[in-house]
Design a protein around this nucleic acid. Structure first.
Length: 426
RNA sequence: GCGGCUAUAGUUCAGCGGCAGAACGCCUGACUGUGGCUCAGGAUGUCGUGGGUUCGAUCCCCACUAGCCGCCCCA
């Protein structure tokens, strides 16, 4: 029988790496709490039409990357339903916002999530079919200030803080505005027209993009095409006055807060729902998949899936990519237990468990060996998993004075049982 | 979905059309209640899977699977 393996694009996360995942998540939760965000947990699968309408039928995600299946009907009369493993979480959050009528509170909703997402792409480094995103959304009725550029700036400032606190050195914030839906349509026409005379000199991919999705031409990395792309009209010139003012206000708030950024006229994101501000935080250590996180404003998303007007802004961080970046930046240290208890002889095992229980109750992390181990083996094992070894033999049991050796210093001490906790905590 | 590279011990990797290798790690002992350093010894394995060529394939060929890199796209 063929051995079973994790399916393509999925993987197991093992210790000690999981400690890094936990640290990242704990740091994110702590930062979100300081900005007064609450956590949401939405289902891992949703009605397929949520993503079709929310993310956009024509996007790559919806058109070719979703895990979709027909749910089984339980009775003849029951209609089957198309379900999809969530490829991103913003649509689910907005669905929940609508379903629970959170707009009726009149308050700005500040929500974060941490969880797995699923896209059926070709796996490579930093790209998996099940991957984890940490994201947050700020949305609500216009009267709650959800449309304010201050919200955009605050989210970006929060992200700068979070990446700094995670210890991600060398991140770069790239910012653009894609304007309103009308602005974008106008720019699309402008771009299409500007491409007509030059597209013949460009790469085959660009010739295709010029027809299917002109905005994507801006993403082209072929060196020979760059001079042509440089001369194409930029979207900033197609924005209406309101979108321009919004973007300027975002930038001046970032300047005031001292958050560094670079404007990138060519930053075009692949989800249909983005309006006005779009951004990416990138890191050079990730290779081709260099985006640590991406996000933007989505003023029309709620309405697109049948809800009330609820402008919002949010982002999704690739947790897998944060892990890769941090692993490249620092060695992941194996955490060691405070003590390893080495019973000498199997008849000492019960007393060893009792001692371990005592120490653990006082908050110490304790590994427990086995009386069948020779002392040498206990030492070898202990040195790998703990900072100290506590020897529990007949002598120690009789006298109530335990032998403790510290591996870092090599010093050995005799410690009365009553003082052991204090000694190990010291 | 397309193109390129790769797949051999727990790990990192050599290797060759004719007995399967190294380093590190692991186990045992020198050392009977003392680890690290040292020394002596030991076990590593469907050579990714399936087919083909061949007297004989881990090696050559084909397909598949998986990983990595690039494209597409994205976190």
């Amino acid at each position: 029988m063929a051995t079973l393996k994790a399916v393509r694009g999925t993987r197991d996360l093992l210790p000690p790496e999981t400690a890094l995942w936990n640290r990242i998540e704990a740091t994110a939760r702590a930062v979100f709490a300081r900005y007064n965000f609450g956590e949401i947990r939405t289902p891992i699968f949703e009605d397929t039409s949520l993503f079709a309408r929310g993310v956009g039928e024509e996007t790559d995600i919806v058109s070719k990357e979703m895990y979709t299946w027909e749910d089984r009907a339980r009775a003849q009369s029951e209609k089957t339903q198309m379900l999809t493993l969530r490829p991103e979480n913003t649509a689910g959050v907005v669905r929940a916002y609508i379903e629970h009528q959170l707009g009726e509170t009149g308050q700005l909703q500040k929500i974060y999530y941490i969880g797995p997402q699923f896209r059926r792409e070709r796996p490579q480094k930093g790209r998996y079919r099940q991957f984890s995103q940490i994201g947050a959304e700020v949305l609500g009725p216009t009267s709650a200030g959800s449309e304010s550029p201050l919200r955009d700036a605050e989210v970006l400032e929060m992200l700068a803080t979070l990446l700094d606190e995670l210890g991600i050195k060398g991140w770069v914030l790239e910012l653009n505005s894609v304007g309103s839906a009308a602005d974008r349509a106008r720019y699309n026409d402008t771009l299409r027209a500007a491409l007509v005379p030059v597209v013949g000199q460009m790469c085959v991919d660009c010739q295709r993009r010029a027809v299917t999705n002109p905005l994507r031409v801006l993403d082209c990395k072929v060196p020979a095409d760059q001079p042509i792309i440089e001369k194409l009209p930029v979207i900033a010139d197609s924005l209406d006055e309101a979108s321009k003012a919004h973007f300027d206000a975002v930038l001046s708030s970032l300047d005031a807060a001292g958050v560094p950024y670079t404007r990138n006229h060519r930053l075009v994101r692949g989800l249909d729902y983005y309006t006005r501000t779009t951004f990416e935080f990138t890191h050079s250590g990730l290779g081709a998949q260099n985006a640590l996180l991406g996000g933007g404003r989505y003023d029309g998303l709620s309405e697109a899936i049948g809800g009330p007007k609820a402008p919002g802004i949010g982002f999704a961080m690739g947790e897998d990519r944060l892990v890769l970046t941090l692993q490249a930046l620092e060695a992941v240290a194996q955490t060691k237990a405070d003590a390893f208890i080495a019973p000498l002889g199997e008849n000492m095992n019960p007393a060893a468990l009792a001692l371990a229980r005592e120490l653990r109750r006082d908050g110490l992390s304790v590994d427990l060996g086995d009386g069948s181990f020779r002392l040498k083996k206990s030492f070898e094992t202990a040195d790998k998993t703990a900072r100290r070894i506590v020897i529990l033999g007949e002598d120690e049991l009789q006298s109530g004075i335990l032998t403790v050796k510290d591996f870092a210093s090599g010093t050995q001490s005799k410690v009365p049982r009553g003082e052991l906790v204090a000694f190990l905590k010291g």
